[in-house]
Simulated assay, not measured.
Amino acid sequence: MEGEINRSVHPIFTRDPEDFMQYLNKQVSVLKEDGKEVTGWVYTIDPVSESFVLLSFTDDKTQLDIVMGPSVRQVSVLDENSETYKKRIEAMFRPPEVEALSEEELEKRKNVLKSWLLKNRLPVQVAGNNGELLSISDALFIEPPYGVENCRSTNEIILGRIQGLIKNMPSDQEEWC
């Protein structure tokens, strides 16, 4: 009918993100609408476009495939051992300075910074899937290796103030400058 409004709702509002989370770090086979099949380890899935980012490993190379959401017809899990390539996948997308630090050093940096932020009466909490982020009221996140350049926020005022606070952290508080 003419003048009728299309009231269809985008799938992001009806599909549970947990549906996608079940595939993370698992080896899957994605059947596309053209009949082709793409196999790889799931790095991430965009919940809006429903596109899959897959990594495949051979002895001498790593291949990245992006399967666009509209072309996905079926997803089958081939290997559920999410730990098989998890560290290798995560290492590919970490900044080099994070790779140079041990897990103990990163944990120490996180705790020193958290202590400094708490001392300044900020509501800081540990966040992220693996507890790797520091979060201040869900308005700002600090990623490893927990420096000024690792702060993420859409609020420029909060971002500037927290970065200034980190820059002014006393050297006896921040042994890893």
Rank of each mutant, 00 (worst) to 15 (best):
L78A: 08
L106G: 15
C151R: 01
W41I: 10
S8L: 14
P47A: 06
T154H: 05
G69H: 13
G147T: 14
Y146I: 05
I158Q: 06
T58S: 15
M68W: 09
D138F: 00
L78H: 07
D60M: 02
P145R: 02
T154G: 14
E90S: 10
E4P: 08
Q74A: 09
L134F: 03
I89D: 14
A127H: 11
I89E: 12
E18D: 13
Q74V: 10
G128A: 12
P145I: 00
E103T: 15
L133G: 06
V48I: 10
Q74K: 11
G164L: 03
D172L: 06
E80V: 08
N25E: 10
T84V: 06
G160V: 01
T62H: 02
V42E: 04
Q163E: 10
D172T: 09
E132C: 05
M1T: 11
E83V: 01
R109Q: 14
S8F: 11
L165Q: 02
T154L: 04
I166C: 01
E99N: 09
G147P: 09
I5T: 14
R94W: 00
G147D: 11
P70D: 07
L159I: 06
H10E: 14
Q163A: 05
N111L: 07
E174A: 14
E149G: 10
Q74L: 07
L113D: 05
L24R: 04
V28P: 15
R15E: 10
N168P: 04
P70R: 00
L165K: 03
G40I: 00
E80I: 04
L55V: 05
R152W: 05
I157L: 03
A91C: 07
V9N: 14
D16Y: 03
T58R: 06
P95M: 03
N129R: 11
Q173K: 06
V30G: 06
R121L: 00
E132H: 09
V72C: 11
F141K: 13
K108Q: 15
Y43F: 10
V30K: 02
G128R: 08
D19C: 07
V124F: 00
E2P: 06
V28Q: 09
R73C: 07
L122E: 03
H10G: 14
K167H: 03
V75S: 15
Y146Q: 12
D172E: 13
E90L: 13
L78Y: 03
K114P: 02
K61S: 13
L55E: 02
V112S: 12
A127S: 15
K87S: 11
V48L: 11
W116I: 04
R73F: 02
E175Y: 03
T84N: 09
D16W: 01
P145T: 10
R161V: 10
Q173R: 04
P95L: 03
L54S: 05
F93V: 13
N155V: 01
L55I: 08
W41V: 11
N25I: 01
L78K: 13
V75H: 14
S56Q: 07
L118S: 09
K86N: 09
V148A: 01
P17K: 02
L64Y: 01
P145A: 12
P170M: 00
T14R: 07
C151I: 02
N150A: 09
R15P: 02
V77N: 11
F57L: 06
Q63A: 11
P47V: 06
D19H: 10
E132A: 08
I89L: 15
T154Q: 09
K87C: 05
Y85H: 15
Q63H: 08
A139D: 14
Y85R: 15
R121D: 00
W41G: 09
N150C: 07
E103A: 15
E156A: 13
